[in-house]
Nucleic acid binder design. Structure first.
Length: 198
DNA sequence: TCATTAAAGTTAT
DNA sequence: ATAACTTTAATGA
């Protein structure tokens, strides 16, 4: 959790409810709010000229998203779309700036979040330059697993569909499917009723 | 090696 | 039932 919920409420936070597929904000619009997920999963995506989706990031419970654009007051370069039912706290830009003024540690934790995001992007960019789809996929599986604790083989259920993995890596679904099957043959991962365990 | 297209199978709502 | 997701196969860059 980046900012305590009661603090957000004291800053006039409103609780927003979304159904899967709802847009929280759209590309090219100006940010006016700080968003923090209470429950649910949100993706940041964009579409290329062919209409192919590219997922930039996926966030779930207790994380904030779109904060860098809010601070900069630059138009969103991505859409925020809910993947599941979501409850999200929403605080106006003015109020969140007041909060940061009054609570230096909030500023600090925001800095930390931004640094983390930047670091993750660097790692991702570095890894995603791997040659073939199979290796690229393995790299992002590694990254995803790092966020959850258990290091054991096959202990981590990938919380994404093959389509989402494809949109996340820029690989088409069919290739994801084939690559994953090959990885299963090589004992890198395990498939149990269509769920991927890594 | 991989994207694309098409078509069919499976699961979730 | 319908939509969403997965799978297989053929083709071409």
């Amino acid at each position: 959790m980046i900012i305590k919920e009661n603090l957000l409420y004291s800053a006039g936070a409103t609780e927003e409810h979304y159904n899967p597929g709802d847009y929280i904000f759209r590309e090219d619009t100006i940010p006016h709010f700080y968003y923090q997920i209470v429950t649910g999963v949100v993706k940041l995506n964009s579409y290329n000229d062919d209409g192919k989706e590219f997922i930039q990031n996926i966030f779930s419970d207790e994380s904030t998203f779109g904060e860098s654009m809010l601070l900069l007051a630059k138009p969103y370069p991505v859409n925020a779309v809910t993947i599941s039912r979501c409850t999200v706290l929403k605080v106006s830009r003015e109020q969140i700036f007041k909060l940061m003024d009054a609570n230096p540690y909030i500023l600090l934790s925001l800095c930390k979040v931004l640094s983390e995001r930047s670091y993750e992007k660097n790692v991702l960019m570095r890894k995603i330059t791997s040659k073939n789809a199979e290796e690229r996929l393995m790299e992002i599986l590694d990254i995803l697993k790092q966020s959850h604790m258990n290091r054991d083989k096959f202990s981590f259920e990938i919380p994404y569909t093959r389509q989402q993995l494809g949109a996340f890596t820029g690989i088409c679904v069919e290739t994801v499917i084939r690559a994953i099957k090959r990885l299963e043959k090589n004992n890198v991962l395990m498939i149990r009723n269509r769920k991927i365990f890594y």
